[in-house]
Nucleic acid binder design. Structure first.
Lengths: 358, 358
DNA sequence: GTATTATATCGAAGCGTTTCGATAAATATC
DNA sequence: GATATTTATCGAAACGCTTCGATATAATAC
């Protein structure tokens, strides 16, 4: 096996000094066009790739980005955060970074739960996806390691973040339901302490208000302990066991929507004829559901990519400014929603003629 | 921000030389018990963590393990390979390795598709999960980088591997169906070119033979192009559109079993009363299916962990021997299978009395 | 008691980069 | 035309570790 070429091999071959080659490769400092070309050609010839370790040692940069996600988030049925992670992986390539993934338990115990890459200072920055223990965030912050949050906002302190435009998504979802003639629209929220879910709830209420509909507490559930399918089914049951039945439900994510579907099947409620249902996220499964789920699509890979872009920028420029990027969403209409024959029950039926199902 | 402690800080504090400290930390070479204690205490005091980069530069080891998985495998609905990946991550921790993940396209084009960590020699070994382009495997092998395969066997050359005991799993599945009175047992294979699927097919046929049942070509489908839910539904349709209807189906994975369920619902076939169905893998979704799926559980995290153990062993000992580890499987009986009222149609019904459903 | 061998510790070279002056040539400034 | 500035290149130190002899002492063999 031939030994790998080093920078000094390149220098020798090009008849230049080490430092000049280094300057050209990292294009810092000055170099004549001629020299530049020469170096680049030799690099190609020897198929030279700089040694990460040497580079890291000399520059005090690891070339790695840490990706932190809570273990239950990451190993959920739906690969939501997996997609985000994948997005970071792809975007890291052109920037020449590696992503070091670690999952953390919700129950944080210092120092056992501190990711190794932090102890060893083996990352130049960190991306945190979804909820993360506050103590850990504080710890990283104290280390002066740049942080970018994805689908999360930290309560006590601002960080740059990449967020879903939840309000807009919720607005589009509820608007769609209202447009198709629904008035008694339920909401299934699961874990309302997650900022994204809270915002979707807000968007839900706002949109109802806009249309002169007062949100009915009997129609929304926000106190389940997690946003799982099971809880979706549970919440649906609680709503339908109440005195007021909705004609449509907006579930704060697709997993809970799926739970709704299961509940509805059990209870003999036909979707979309008896109940229109809309989800959020557009996970892979939603197109395969029975019926295929109308939902609000979230561009997960793109979120990961944006997070990397932002983080790399912070690492390189040491910028301290905080940038919150809102990623647009898109309403995907499939078969779980349809026009009502009659407007809802409580509000006065307006346009009752034109809203007859086609 | 305080500077990190280096090995020379430790040496100074302990009144020893650099080299002695290094020897103790890596416990290579000799050191008196007294010295050892002293060093360890100082390490603790200064909370010293060796620099990865320096270590890597000096030792020519990166401390990283590459994890390669095809992109369609990794971003599938069911997080099968994600779980394996997670297993490697966990096991890598105590061994002090990092996992560098990369996905590769099925359509391999050198050199664009070559993972960066190979170009930069930034991994000490590689784990390949599921199918992988032959050219890439050859490339890595030529680099003299140790390889461990997970859920895959390479056609042209032997490598150490961690494999599912597919034959045993298939045996358990089919045995279960036979025990519950089925004789006309179908098989849905999807992509038979994947070694695991091929073995499950083999196990299926073997078990039938053992019980004096000749596999009926009208009852198995092995020529779909992938092992997806869609293809599962498709294959089920093809079988049921044929002249011979099975009373039970063994799907080579849970995704295809889910497809079967969807097809059955559409066609008005009741599971398990009209058709018993059994899957393979035990993905998270299977417990949530309607009905909950009887399946063969695969211990995915454990497979990842075993792969890391094996790889670390190879890296450390430079062992050239090839070890194929077969991970046991477990039959999980849920509600998608039940006893037949009558034995199957073609073979003579034996024990027809005792096999009446309870 | 001397020769071997095992044990314990150390100094220094080396790993492959970056980066900080230093130097020299080319260009701009007045 | 002398001085200042920009551009181009280089040598050498530094980054924090491993590892290879070298040296010294302790244990064992004969």
């Amino acid at each position: 096996m031939k030994k790998r070429a080093t920078i000094s091999d390149v220098a020798k071959q090009a008849g230049l000094s080490l430092s000049t080659v280094s300057l050209v490769i990292n294009n810092s400092g000055y170099a004549s066009e001629q020299t530049r070309q020469k170096v680049l050609r030799v690099v190609e010839e020897l198929s030279y790739h700089p040694s990460r370790a040497a580079k890291g040692l000399a520059s005090k940069k690891s070339g790695n980005i840490g990706f932190i996600v809570s273990d239950d988030h990451f190993s959920r049925l739906e690969p939501f955060y997996t997609r985000i992670f994948l997005g970071t992986e792809f975007e890291a390539r052109p920037h020449n970074y590696y992503i070091l993934l670690t999952t953390v338990e919700n129950q944080f115990r210092e120092p056992d739960s501190i990711p190794r890459f932090l102890l060893e200072r083996n990352v130049d920055g960190v991306i945190i996806a979804g909820k993360c223990p506050g103590k850990l965030v504080d710890y990283i912050d104290r280390l002066d390691i740049p942080i970018v949050l994805v689908d999360y906002t930290f309560p006590r302190k601002r960080f740059s973040s990449v967020l879903i435009d939840n309000r807009k998504g919720a607005h589009a979802a509820v608007e769609h339901l209202i447009e198709t003639g629904h008035k008694d629209i339920g909401f299934i929220g699961g874990d309302i302490t997650h900022p994204s879910i809270a915002e979707r709830f807000l968007g839900y209420k706002e949109t109802l208000f806009e249309h002169g509909i007062a949100p009915d507490p009997r129609l929304y559930i926000t106190d389940e302990d997690d946003t799982t399918m099971r809880n979706g089914a549970n919440a649906a049951r609680r709503i339908f066991d109440g005195e007021k039945k909705p004609s449509a439900i907006f579930a704060a994510n697709d997993a809970m929507a799926l739970g709704c579907i299961q509940f509805a099947k059990q209870r003999g409620i036909d979707i979309p004829n008896d109940l229109s249902l809309i989800g959020f996220d557009d996970i892979e499964a939603s197109v395969h559901m029975e019926p295929p789920l109308t939902t609000v699509k979230v561009f997960k890979e793109e979120m990961g990519a944006l997070a990397v872009q932002r983080l790399v920028d912070v690492i390189k420029t040491k910028s301290l400014s905080i940038v919150n990027t809102y990623v647009p969403v898109e309403l995907i209409v499939r078969s779980s929603t349809r026009k009502t024959i009659l407007g809802g029950g409580s509000a006065e039926p307006r346009n009752s003629v034109s809203s007859v199902a086609s």
